[in-house]
Design a protein around this nucleic acid. Sequence first.
RNA 1: GUGGGUGUAGCUCAAUGGUAGAGUCCCGGAUUGUGAUUCCGGUUGUUGUGGGUUCGAGCCCCAUCAUCCACCCCA
Length: 420
Amino acid sequence: MSGKKIQRLRGFKDILPEETEKWQKAEEIIQKVFHQFNFKEIRVPVLEQNDLFQRSIGDVTDIVQKEMYSFKDRHGDTVAMRPEGTASVVRAYIENNLFYPPSVQKLYYFGAMFRYERPQAGRLRQFHQAGAEVFGSQEPYIDAEVIVALYTILRELNIENPTVHLNSVGCEVCRPNYLSYLKIFFEKNKEGFCPLCQERMLTNPLRVLDCKVESCKNLLSTVEGTYQHLCDNCDTHFEEVKKNLNLLGLTFTLDKFLVRGLDYYTKTAFEITSSSLGSQDAIAGGGRYDKLVEELGGPKTEAVGFAIGLERLISLMPEGRAGKRPDVYMISLGETAKEKAIKLLNDIRKEGFSGEINYQDSLKSSFKKASKGNFRFAILIGDEEVKEGVVSFKDLDAGEQQRISHNASEIIAQMQKLTP
RNA sequence: GUGGGUGUAGCUCAAUGGUAGAGUCCCGGAUUGUGAUUCCGGUUGUUGUGGGUUCGAGCCCCAUCAUCCACCCCA
């Protein structure tokens, strides 16, 4: 080895074979559940025009202001690596006229997202999300259905104690009302808040609501939440969502201060957390965004969606997919035996069986590798076998060994006989 | 972006400022062609990197990089 080692970028991770079993299981279950709810997969690019995210996520949010990987490409266009999935899916929905013919569109996606943040437990610069979006319905039932789909995924993956937090953040009618209510409250109680909160009252009043300082929390216990200041329209919608969730047997906790960090949310907002995660405790989050499609140049289209953080999800999974067991471990001793073994393995693989060959270790260590590798059968070819035109065929589970003819069909028949 | 902890063998970790070690893993062997356990033997390091202090630095100091934890924000 010479030369300087190149290491991966900060906040970026290699996902090694040991962990990919969990990833594969997560992906399998997620796809299965999405299909149960009649979602179709969409795949969108990782790179988009910078403007897309500014206009959708909001240009005063932290994500856009300080966390985006955005740069000028060789042509001089300002582009950005997506920090989340919804914006791209909405763009694709509009650009490909998926709103025609008019009907409900249910889409899901998987993908890597990028945010230039300081890495921490459960927080990376490249991370992965699985997300779902439903376009073209303002039915409260759809909000509930989407939450149930999300919850189903977590349940099927045996995630420990997930908690569903629910709120409604209102629309462009009720939000200003709520903000002026907050403003009055803050003015009355300004002195009791921490310096940071006093700052936030001016810059981002909603952020004051989830301050962790004790004195602030005490003061806030008497503040009313967003869902207590909804207009009639939003209020009935919220009531219906709750009713439907109860109907579907999903328990949730109302979180009057749940505010999501992206500007496009309206009405329903939800989040799923787990106490086993540490400081970054959200596994998934989402909500309704009835204005976004219009704002990005599409027809008036209401929508709901969510995204699951796959790294966080996977860290909570008790187990991965049971790896498929490899079938045959070929062991050969000597040159002629090696040639026979290579050809035999090739024939066996052609028939759809999996296998590995070892022609350089000692016999003992070869068998050791066969059992460590969880192989079902071992086939040994040495001088004796070559001479007699056979192979030694061993059932590694039973520990029984026999000599059988060295042609592939014989061996395959033997394997099929022993494999249920 | 701010604050704190940690970087020693592939992995998990030792080493009052005085010759860098153990376990594990891997490889070989224990009547020469068989998986476990046990036993014997063997390999492995620019102590993250670069400076500085010192007769002497894995250990002290500075810088840098990485990593972990928290703030912030969010998946």
